[in-house]
Write a protein that binds this DNA or RNA. Structure first.
Lengths: 108, 108
DNA sequence: ATGATATATTAGAATTGTCGTAAATGCATG
DNA sequence: CATGCATTTACGACAATTCTAATATATCAT
């Protein structure tokens, strides 16, 4: 019953489970960008950016708009950004906890 | 600078990017469970559940408590659940959109 | 210490993800 | 229609995941 939901959910997570794709998403947080602009901004190969964008598009995490020669990408749903923000929060808390532990271990 | 953050963030996402691990997480939403209870609840091999739990533990998504022979797992941070909830929302919206499209295509 | 139960770890095979190079497509302009 | 620019696709090499089956560790009771 719910198995398919978990699989779809995992697909979405898989799409977010790559540092370059996350970097692309965060670049798009400020508004839509063309492929070329993303390439320039992140310093990744065009082909590679295109491949990652294809995955993001396929998962409907981003949407596109063509303007002449350029194709502009934008984040489809702000909730994706929210979700990423929460995960980042968790990460930051963990890092803070981590340094606390380090300090504790060092007796500071 | 931020590259490491994106990599850590991707690690967290990778941890969530598996249907069985998501199923485990959702099982733990109702409170802590022992490994055996998870195995029973989800119908996955013990070894496999253990492997998935190891990954979740490593990513600090879950925490453990030993009580005699049993080890109880719980979700470390409620924000993880929140994030998953948002992603699921997006998914549901997409599914709704999808059926709308289907209806449109069929002329209903 | 031995056995019984719960959990964890390991090894190896199959599948999947990533990235680079090169070739291909789409669109605009001369 | 030929050329140039933006983007995508194809394909091969390599790394990472996932599963099963077997083995190992930990705890408790006897």
């Amino acid at each position: 019953m719910k198995k398919e939901i978990f699989e779809l959910h995992a697909e979405v997570c898989k799409t977010l489970a790559n540092p370059k794709r996350l970097e692309i998403l965060y670049a798009l947080k400020g508004g839509e960008l063309s492929v070329g602009e993303i390439v320039e901004k992140l310093g990744i190969t065009k082909a590679n950016v295109s491949q990652h964008l294809a995955l993001l598009r396929q998962a409907r995490v981003v949407s596109t708009r063509r303007d002449g020669v350029n194709i502009f990408y934008r984040i489809s749903n702000p909730k994706i950004v929210q979700a990423c923000g929460l995960m980042r929060d968790v990460l930051m808390e963990q890092l803070a906890e981590g340094s606390k532990f380090v300090k504790k271990a060092k007796g500071i």
